[in-house]
Design a protein around this nucleic acid. Structure first.
Lengths: 210, 210
DNA sequence: TGAATTTCTGACCAATTGGTCAACATTATG
DNA sequence: CATAATGTTGACCAATTGGTCAGAAATTCA
């Protein structure tokens, strides 16, 4: 059959196998990147044969594309939830918390994204310059307005957002390093990180008295 | 000849070509990762033929190894310069600044490192668990002692360090994303980031009054 | 200058890899 | 239960890739 665009009945087997393949592909692509991954790796991870993979997807690229498309929406979702009406410091801290949870619960997705960006984002640069840029502009304006009202310390909103992305995704993308450094302390990393980031962003955002 | 360990006279041509090759290899590996890079890419980037590359290095792996070995020392250097006797907040802020300069001046090295970690650090895990872990422990103790003396706000020193690595390296590793989001504002990114991070870490570290 | 040494390359090899296909196996369905 | 539709695979192909090698070209040095 080969997964092309046309609307066709999707059988139970198709649903299951496609799910299996995407899951295995996420494992493989998130570690090895696009060029470093092979269809054979994905097949073996999924417990299927190589031709069987290519029965469900037209090509290696098609699998990768599918994963990236699913990814971007989920990835941007937490940012959209910044509410202009809430308490600014709480809004931002809970955004940090949501992002940290994502690093914990979806590390493969984080690494897939990191791999793509590291390679110059060849397949999603347009989305970054479109969707992501617009969304970030919107949220930056909210943050800026909070600053103007004196509700938070005046900081560059874009770099505040970058720092949140960086500090939270770090726990997924650099997981190996975090564990190597923390060694036996690594068990509680999530709570420690959560607490530290909370402290840091509260201190950063709470305006000086006077 | 083939670069093996034995001590041998190094000619002018050898010095130059090896330099050329490593430089080209840094370009290629930092973007495509180890498996994604090919000797042909490196050769073409260096303006040499493929067999010529293999005349100077035993294998693709040998080039990669050489780069990683050179990298780790340079990478850890700024951390070693935290002086227990200086003013704590200034010491940490100037560490942040040095790391941000490295992200600006050596983005390829940052990406090479990021690629390696993302892939599970197969070639440097031992160094991370040894050198890096020890060094981090040492610096963490210094930071902890500052906190105990009330010179900085008490925060988890490891996660403070992680946050510094994350926020600074982000500008090298996620460069494409930063530029996509900042668009025409991207020109001044270094000064903006420097200022933001300075504000953030001063706010985080300066102890509360009372 | 000319022999010794170093540098360089075209041609080649074997392994890997993305992808195809004919035929076989299984599952759905009239 | 027979037949059509769907699912699966071994065998295969062409392109890519890491690496070799004999010998040609350039460089060094006595």
């Amino acid at each position: 059959m080969a997964r092309s665009g046309t609307t066709k009945k999707v059988t139970r087997i198709q649903r299951e196998k496609i799910e299996q393949i995407l899951n295995a592909a996420l494992d493989v692509f998130s570690i090895h990147g696009f060029r470093g991954a092979t269809i054979e790796m994905i097949a073996s991870q999924a417990g299927l044969s190589k031709p069987n993979i290519l029965y469900y997807f037209d090509s290696k690229e098609a699998i990768h594309t599918e994963l990236l498309e699913n990814l971007l929406d989920a990835w941007l979702d937490p940012l959209e939830k910044l509410s202009p009406d809430g308490d600014p410091v709480e809004e931002i801290c809970s955004y940090v918390h949501r992002k940290l949870e994502m690093a914990r619960d979806f590390p493969r997705e984080s690494r897939l994204f990191a791999n793509e960006i590291l390679q110059g984002a060849p397949r999603i640069l347009e989305d970054l310059k479109g969707q992501l840029r617009e969304l970030t502009d919107t949220e930056a304006k909210i943050i800026e307005s909070w600053a103007k009202q004196g509700k938070i310390r005046p900081v560059n909103p874009y770099h505040l957002i970058f720092s949140i992305w960086a500090t939270t995704q770090h726990y997924a993308d650099f997981d190996v390093q975090v564990h190597a450094v923390l060694a036996d302390r690594a068990d509680g990393w999530f709570e420690q990180a959560s607490q530290f980031l909370d402290t840091m962003y509260r201190a950063t955002l709470t305006p000086d008295k006077g």
